[in-house]
Every structure is written in C-alpha cells, then in structure tokens.
Amino acid sequence: MIKLDFNDHFELSQLYADYASALSSGNWDLWPEFFTDECCYRLQPRENFDRGFPLATLSFESKGMLKDRVYGIRETLFHDPYYQRIVTGAPVVRKASEGRFECEANYAVFRTKLSELSSVFNVGRYIDTIVRTPDGLKFQSRLVVYDSEMIPNSIIYPI
C-alpha cells in the first residue's frame, strides 16, 4: 500500500473532481489546461488495451493537439447537441515518487440529448501519470480505457 500525505491525497482528489466538473460544464477551453505541454491523451477500447494493441479511438500527443480538438468541437464538428456528465471514482495511487503519481480511477459518462432521457454513454477507467508543476498537479498522460466494444457513432467531447 502506498502512503500519501493528506495534501497529496487532497490535491489528487481535487484534480479528478475539477476535471470532471470542467468537462461536465461544457467549458472545453478548460480541458487542455489540465495537462502538461508535452502530454499524451488516448481513448482506447479495453479489448485493444488488454491485448496490447496500440490502436486508439482518439490519440493526442501534446497540449497543442488538445487545443486543436477544442477548436474542432467548437468550430468544425457538426452533431446533435447533447449534455455530458462525468462521474469519477476516487483515484487509486499505484505508484508515487517525488512530484509524480501513477493513478487509476473508474468513470462513468452520462449523456442527455435534448428532449430525451439521460443514458449511460461510456464507462471505463482512467490510467494516469500526474506530475507536480509550478501551476499545481497536471496530467502528463491520461489513458482512457472504455469497457464497451461498441460505442455510439462518434465520440465528440473529451472523456
């Protein structure tokens, strides 16, 4: 078992809660700010992850690429509007060293289309590397491993 001091545990929990809150609010400009400049964000089906296959549904290799995705969401992607609500479990720290944490947390994403009932959109787990920066804790890498082999036509918003 890894022992963290209270401040580290609180900061990690707050990072996960702030991330879920930002994405649930639809304020997409906040999303890249949770990451270091040199980062990795990948969305991958569990089947590929478990087999060691590198194929991912989405893969971004820098904060600049995340900002490009935000631009795409706002300006170029056309889709039926919907709301997204993310619920995240408490992060489990798998490894910790000075200023670096390897964590996992379960998540569930609910989607609400206008004039429709809410539905479960996507569930899985985050596998993260988090580093301490002068601006606080940031994701250096976030691998989003979703459980279902079937996903809706497209995933527009970050998870």
Rank of each mutant, 00 (worst) to 15 (best):
E61F: 13
D50T: 07
Q84K: 06
E33W: 07
C40V: 14
A96E: 06
D68E: 12
T36K: 02
D29N: 13
F78D: 12
T76G: 03
L66D: 01
C40M: 14
D29H: 13
L43Y: 01
Y71V: 08
E75F: 10
F78C: 07
A20C: 15
R69A: 08
S25W: 00
E75D: 08
Q84P: 03
T76W: 11
A96I: 04
H9V: 01
Q14D: 09
N48G: 03
A22W: 03
G72K: 13
K67C: 07
E38S: 14
G26Q: 03
C40W: 08
E11Q: 14
E75S: 11
G89W: 07
K63P: 00
G64N: 13
W31Y: 15
R69E: 06
Q44S: 02
C39D: 02
T36V: 11
F35Y: 14
S13L: 09
L77F: 15
D29S: 13
F35K: 04
I73N: 04
P32Y: 02
N7K: 15
A90L: 14
Y19K: 01
D18P: 04
S62N: 09
L23W: 04
T36L: 03
L43N: 00
Y83A: 12
Y16M: 09
E47Q: 15
A90G: 08
D68F: 08
K67D: 05
A17H: 12
L30I: 06
G89K: 09
Y16A: 08
T76C: 10
A56V: 02
E61H: 15
W28E: 05
W31T: 05
A96N: 05
K63L: 05
L30K: 15
T88S: 11
V93H: 06
D68V: 03
S59C: 12
E11D: 09
P32N: 09
D80E: 15
L15D: 00
S62Y: 02
L58D: 02
L23S: 03
K63G: 06
P45L: 07
K67F: 05
A56E: 04
D29Y: 12
S59M: 10
R94W: 05
K95M: 12
E33C: 06
N27I: 14
F34I: 06
T57D: 10
G52V: 04
V70C: 10
Y83W: 12
L15T: 01
G89T: 03
R85L: 14
F35A: 03
N48C: 10
N7G: 04
E11V: 04
A96M: 04
F35R: 02
T57F: 13
C39N: 01
Y41P: 02
L12Q: 03
G72M: 06
V70T: 05
L15W: 01
A90F: 10
F49M: 04
R51Q: 14
F60A: 00
F34N: 02
T57A: 11
H9L: 13
W28R: 11
R51E: 10
